[in-house]
Amino acid sequence: MKALIETIVASLVDHPEDIVVTETEEDTKIVYHLTVNQEDVGKVIGKNGRIAKAIRTVVYAARTDAKKRIYLDIM
């Protein structure tokens, strides 16, 4: 899942080397924390959060464990 997030975001940002995705797993959920360069945050979030919502939709659809919810935090 990390590779999927990095691949999607790398095509959107000017500084793909600054992409960091960390994973936190609990009993009922998995949280991915996406950190990008400060200049690229607006590009990842998009106007009215549309790009962020689209990224989350793809990530949620690609989940392999149906028992755990997946969350994506963009920082």
Rank of each mutant, 00 (worst) to 15 (best):
M1P: 12
K2Q: 15
K2P: 01
K2V: 11
A3G: 12
L4D: 01
L4T: 01
L4S: 03
I5D: 10
I5L: 10
E6N: 03
E6P: 08
T7C: 04
T7H: 15
T7L: 14
A10K: 08
A10N: 14
L12Y: 00
V13K: 06
V13P: 07
V13D: 03
D14M: 02
D14A: 03
H15N: 07
E17D: 13
D18L: 11
D18R: 11
V20Q: 12
V20M: 09
V20F: 09
T22I: 02
T22L: 05
E23C: 11
E23A: 09
T24K: 09
T24D: 07
E25Q: 14
T28Q: 05
K29V: 05
K29L: 11
I30K: 14
I30N: 06
V31K: 03
Y32M: 12
Y32I: 09
L34T: 09
L34M: 14
L34D: 12
L34Q: 14
T35Y: 14
T35Q: 15
N37T: 02
Q38W: 07
Q38E: 12
E39L: 10
D40R: 03
D40F: 04
D40N: 04
G42D: 02
K43F: 03
G49N: 11
G49F: 13
G49K: 15
A54P: 10
A54T: 13
I55R: 08
R56Q: 06
T57H: 11
V59D: 08
Y60Q: 11
A61C: 04
A61H: 11
R63S: 06
R63E: 08
T64P: 00
D65R: 00
D65S: 02
A66K: 01
K67M: 04
K68W: 00
R69M: 01
I70P: 02
I70L: 03
I70H: 01
L72G: 01
L72C: 04
I74G: 02
I74D: 00
